[in-house]
Nucleic acid binder design. Structure first.
Length: 325
DNA sequence: ATTTAGACCTGTCAGC
DNA sequence: TGCTGACAGGTCTAAA
């Protein structure tokens, strides 16, 4: 789910809240979320580690730990972090009474001082928090795959309904080789007009597919690719190596614009994305084409069209983004 | 050498 | 109400 703006927003929140915290222990409720090393080593090595810093690279989130260890996290489609204040307990009775439910839905968290535990017919229990109660809903508490328990009583939950997200623990020597392949950071100094032009020059695939390739530019996903192409007035099926200088220039500026605005608006939540406090981002209200099929273009009122490119839904305005050069 | 289904997963919503 | 199919912020791998 999250693309660069959502990962960046989360990174900033984590930087402001968990740097300096000590990880007392970690609970893993879906083992495949841990990509490296194996569970036993992961649990042993991370115990007692102190969080030294938070970084982002593309859609990856890095958590620097003591002893030259670091966590590499990719949230894929539905991964989120949620920081719980002290006092939250895990309902272990759920696990004992119904292991299948435990594995599918994840553990349930509750707070002893909660004023209004809410039960529903479908779910066993929905527990609302005394703090930000409306924000801590089912998806946040019942799809927990990994729980980091800090020594100060706070818990950092990694929630992920679709279980695609991955958390890996490596030592410092691994980082350079593992991420050397990644493209330029679109909001960093290496992302120059020349750099973008060079990356596109030898790509004969369409520009939408090229933008989704993390080796071209790191951090762009389906939402911001569509929005950047609309911003640059370029048809998504245009071969990447046929863009004119003017078009490349517009695309370069468009990428920076839509990503920057995405961060300023707190990320795009059309479904699952939540920030560290469980709040939605506002950027969905600023979409020009993404998920606006058949709605009028904000520039020219032509209905937005939806096509499939590289098995991803693609949205564009046929008038503002003409197919011919 | 590229392009493209399929896999990994669960949830929601429209339509019948 | 219940079933089915389409679709959802991603990326890897195997087959065409």
């Amino acid at each position: 789910m999250p693309e660069l703006p959502e990962v960046e927003y989360t990174a900033r929140q984590l930087r402001a809240s968990v740097v300096g915290a000590t990880i007392e222990d970690v609970q893993v409720f879906w083992e495949r979320t841990i990509g490296h090393p194996d569970i036993a080593q992961f649990l042993t090595q991370i115990k007692g580690e102190r969080i030294e810093g938070i970084r982002r690279r593309g859609k990856f989130l890095f958590v620097d730990l003591s002893e030259q260890l670091f966590l590499s996290i990719h949230r894929r489609m539905t991964g989120n972090f949620l920081l719980l204040p002290p006092g939250w307990q895990i309902d272990t009775s759920t696990r004992e009474s119904d292991p299948a439910l435990w594995l599918v839905k994840g553990p349930i968290f509750y707070h002893e001082q909660a004023e209004f535990p809410v039960s529903t017919a479908k779910e066993k229990v929905r527990v609302m928090a005394p703090i930000a109660p409306q924000l801590i809903a089912r998806s946040a508490t019942t799809h927990c795959r990994v729980c980091f328990n800090f020594s100060d009583g706070r818990r950092l939950l990694f929630t992920d309904p679709r279980k695609f997200g991955r958390i890996e623990l490596w030592n410092g020597a691994h980082e350079q080789e593992a991420f050397a392949f990644m493209g330029a950071e679109p909001l960093g100094p290496q992302f120059t007009l020349t750099a973008l032009a060079e990356m596109l020059a030898n790509r004969k695939t369409n520009i939408k597919t090229a933008l989704l390739d993390q080796k071209v530019v790191a951090g762009i996903g389906n939402i911001y690719a569509d929005e950047a192409l609309f911003n640059a007035r370029i048809h998504p099926l245009r071969p990447a190596n046929t863009l004119s200088n003017a078009e490349t220039q517009r695309l370069h500026a468009g990428i920076i614009t839509v990503l920057t605005l995405g961060i300023e608006h707190g990320g795009t939540s059309f479904n699952d994305y939540r920030n560290l406090w469980g709040e939605v981002g506002n950027n969905f209200d600023h979409m020009c084409v993404y998920q606006r099929t058949k709605q009028p273009c904000l520039t020219c009122t032509t209905p937005i069209e939806r096509i499939t490119i590289a098995q991803r839904s693609t949205h564009y305005c046929p008038t503002c983004q003409p197919e011919r050069v």
